[in-house]
Design a protein around this nucleic acid. Structure first.
Lengths: 77, 77
DNA sequence: GGAAATTTGTTCGTATGTATA
DNA sequence: TTATACATACGAACAAATTTC
């Protein structure tokens, strides 16, 4: 699915890119929730800090917003 | 803030000295929490292992104790 | 209302690899 | 070779907000 564990980019960046692509193609529409940290851990086989780093990157890019106790949501386009 | 990045002492030692001075002058009183590792990273512009080395030095000197999941605290005088 | 599960927030513990002096 | 420093990654504990039953 595009995550190349042997690639030069860190895993959290590759995961963020996968999520960003899903946002771009409408898999995750605006205002919808993206998978939880635990969900990303399971899907990509990484630890929670790594999943969190990916989400942090998406937040920095303005693609998602996170709400404590609820989840992370696709920012409104 | 007294940290001389061009000085002969390693950064982690200088950071530890700064914290030790704050403990001595009462800025961080006994049983109070000192800044987290992330806080030291931001304040002194270093990476986490370096901040941890500084704290390790303070623990070795008996000035602070660290508790997993909570933080590092000034030892009781 | 209350208890439990889910989810994110924060923090320290540990390990590996890379780069530099 | 050793010491220092950074980046990455996994593990674990504690905390707080939210949702669900």
């Amino acid at each position: 699915m595009g995550v190349d564990l042997d690639g030069p980019e860190p895993m959290y960046e590759q995961i963020a890119d996968v999520i960003a692509a899903r946002i771009a193609d409408g898999t995750y529409p605006p205002r919808r929730r993206i998978p939880s940290e635990a969900g990303l851990c399971e899907e990509f086989g990484v630890a929670r800090p790594t999943a969190r780093s990916a989400i942090r990157l998406l937040v920095e890019r303005g693609l998602v917003v996170t709400v404590r106790g609820k989840g992370s949501y696709v920012a409104e386009g």
